[in-house]
């Protein structure tokens, strides 16, 4: 067997096992915490529409049986596995009667469209600037960059988001205060919509992008300082290799640990996405997950965790492959091992 095939197979096996464990956890965990999914739905009903106790009781029974929550736990579990195997994530309790898959697939594109470019760009720019700062270590440029990084990475995320919102949307009124597009428009491939989309995109993007630059920049600077102090850099320098090329060496060599960081960060990205969504009322999957959790919507929690965890697993899988491409040490290590 080709070593690369072997490597891929091993990775696939590993991720499949992780996925199965994740499936079990997503079933057990929401049910293990105290509280009850249907009761919260019922509370909504009691606070808004109900005036008769009979109606509440009736609704409670109906909800329990509709979602199969009156069945024994093992039966629910078999049911759940059966559905997942068929790609069915069930119906949300909180957002009844929306199907969990519909909820996720209608909001996930927004999260992806925001997070993927913002995180990638901040990662790239952060690493470039960080490396550059390390190269110009202890100069004015470095001082300026480094302090900017520190500030950007240390400011609590939502405060930064609110700062952008208050400054550019509320005070200066350059950008809209909420949403993913102008509510009067219907999402479509028209110039008006695209313009509105990009207009609304700017602030959420910037908030992730800028804080991300801080995080990646600080890390990259530290690592690049180490790289610049390393023997090979010293040697290349004394062999006459020009500065610009040394910068590239450093950049390339910090990429590997930074890619690890990136893939680990992906899990947290969901949290970051939630905050962006909340501050800018931007469409996305984070808030859905959050609502699902606080209302204990088992179906929604299960569904979103499966999707989120799968995408994180997938991203990690891709990173593993990326590693192999970028860092020969790892690639050769896998192949020869």
């Amino acid at each position: 067997m080709h070593p690369i095939t072997k490597f891929l197979l091993r990775k696939i096996l590993f991720y499949t096992a992780t996925f199965i464990i994740m499936l079990v956890i997503t079933f057990v965990l929401p049910r293990a915490i105290p509280g009850n999914a249907v009761l919260m739905q019922l509370r909504q009903f009691m606070r808004t529409a109900a005036t008769n106790p009979e109606a509440i009781e009736e609704r409670y029974r109906a909800l329990l049986s509709y979602f199969g929550l009156d069945k024994p736990l093992w039966e629910q579990f078999v049911d759940y596995l059966w559905r997942v195997a068929h790609g069915d994530l069930g119906v949300s309790i909180t957002f009844f009667p929306k199907r969990v898959s519909d909820l996720i697939f209608s909001s996930l594109p927004w999260s992806l469209a925001l997070l993927v470019p913002a995180y990638t760009a901040s990662w790239f720019v952060g690493n470039v600037l960080g490396t550059y700062a390390a190269h110009r270590r202890n100069t004015a440029i470095d001082n300026a960059l480094f302090s900017t990084f520190v500030v950007l990475s240390q400011v609590p995320y939502f405060i930064f988001g609110f700062f952008l919102l208050a400054t550019f949307a509320v005070q200066m009124r350059i950008f809209p205060t909420y949403g993913g597009w102008d509510v009067g428009l219907v999402p479509s491939l028209t110039w008006d919509f695209i313009r509105s989309y990009l207009h609304h995109y700017a602030l959420p993007f910037l908030s992730i992008f800028l804080t991300g630059i801080g995080v990646w920049g600080t890390g990259a600077r530290t690592m690049a300082i180490y790289e610049f102090g390393s023997d090979y850099m010293e040697y290349a320098d004394s062999m006459g290799v020009p500065e610009s090329r040394l910068l590239r060496y450093a950049f390339k060599n910090i990429l590997v640990p930074q890619i690890t960081g990136f893939s680990m960060q992906l899990g947290f990205a969901v949290g970051g996405a939630l905050l962006t969504e909340i501050v800018f009322s931007y469409p996305g999957v984070g808030w859905l997950l959050y609502r699902g959790t606080i209302t204990q919507d088992y179906m929604l929690i299960q569904g979103s965790f499966i999707v989120v965890a799968s995408s994180v697993l997938l991203a990690n899988f891709i990173t593993d492959i990326l590693y192999a491409v970028i860092d020969p040490r790892i690639r050769k290590g896998y192949v020869s091992a």
Partner: peptide, 11 residues
């Protein structure tokens, strides 16, 4: 170079 172990760019 003095320490040849690390003197060549590993990547």
């Amino acid at each position: 170079p003095q320490s040849v172990m690390n003197a060549l760019n590993p990547t």
